[in-house]
């Protein structure tokens, strides 16, 4: 059985800095990391491989070449192959183009199931997995919090989606695209100390547009159907404000306000 985990590396948004004068994100020094949902997808694949060592796991990402060390660490925890799609002309691709690029590669690959995250923390559109589903003609479900491990066979998978409204169980014919939520318990394991320098370079494949063969105008900013015209931080107008401390005086002020406005 072969599983392909389609994953994205994202800036650690919690450490993002914003330059208010130039209106740009300061990306330098901001660490890249695996998108949290996507880590769960790999974590699940590794658990399945523990049960059945015959399972072959490939991790696929479209990213700048600088993610190679991050992919290496994923190979050091037991993933069999890392495929990085990397081409300068792909920079600036929107989700529609990204899906077409990933889809073109996947269409040439064998798989029994595709595992992804549900939502990336940088763009957070959740577009790529359903779009891959459309390109590859596969069923797809986002927000998966649990996969019944015993059910995960060659023909179908039973998955659970636990969201704010309900816990819903679905059965999907395989191959399908299962998109994990970080609420799932699966986690990407850390590299073991003894493996931290293990040479895994022979298991990494880097592909460029030479292999995928898109025309110039089809990819990157040019090929995208949506374009960020402007990015900015939102300024809120502050009305006439009352500032007080959390002492007796502050409590009195708030109390008076609540009474005046008839909340009490």
């Amino acid at each position: 059985m072969k599983l392909v985990c389609v994953v994205k590396f994202v800036p650690d948004v919690d450490r993002f800095e914003y330059d208010h004068e130039k209106h740009v994100l300061i990306r330098e020094g901001s660490r890249m990391m695996i998108n949290p949902d996507d880590g769960c997808a790999i974590g699940f694949a590794l658990e399945m491989k523990k049960r059945n060592p015959e399972i072959f796991i490939e991790v696929l990402t479209m990213a700048p070449a600088s993610v190679v060390p991050l992919v290496e660490d994923i190979l050091r925890v037991g993933v069999d192959q890392g495929t990085i799609i990397s081409d300068r002309s792909y920079a600036g691709s929107d989700s529609w183009v990204t899906s077409r690029i990933l889809g073109r590669y996947l269409a040439t690959t064998e798989y029994d199931c595709i595992l992804t995250g549900s939502q990336a923390i940088d763009g957070d559109t959740s577009h790529v997995p359903p779009q891959l589903g459309e390109i590859l003609g596969l069923g797809q479900i986002s927000g998966i919090t649990k996969v019944e491990e015993d059910s995960f066979g060659s023909e179908s998978a039973v998955v659970e989606v636990d969201d704010e409204e309900a816990v819903t169980t679905y059965e999907l014919n395989l191959p399908a695209i299962l998109s994990f939520s970080r609420k799932s318990k699966c986690r990407l394991p850390h590299v073991r100390f003894k493996d931290r320098k293990k040479d895994v370079t022979d298991r990494i494949k880097v592909l460029s547009n030479d292999e995928l063969g898109f025309a110039k105008g089809e990819v990157g900013l040019k090929g995208s159907l949506t374009k960020v015209a402007k990015a900015y931080t939102r300024k809120y107008e502050s009305g006439a404000q009352l500032r007080v401390a959390a002492d007796d005086n502050g409590v009195e002020t708030v109390l008076k306000f609540l009474k005046e406005k008839r909340f009490l």
Binding site: V13, F16, D124, V228, R234
Partner: peptide, 11 residues
């Protein structure tokens, strides 16, 4: 976008 740190105006 970017975890809500920014707003993006898209065309």
């Amino acid at each position: 976008a970017y975890g809500g740190r920014m707003m993006a105006a898209i065309e």
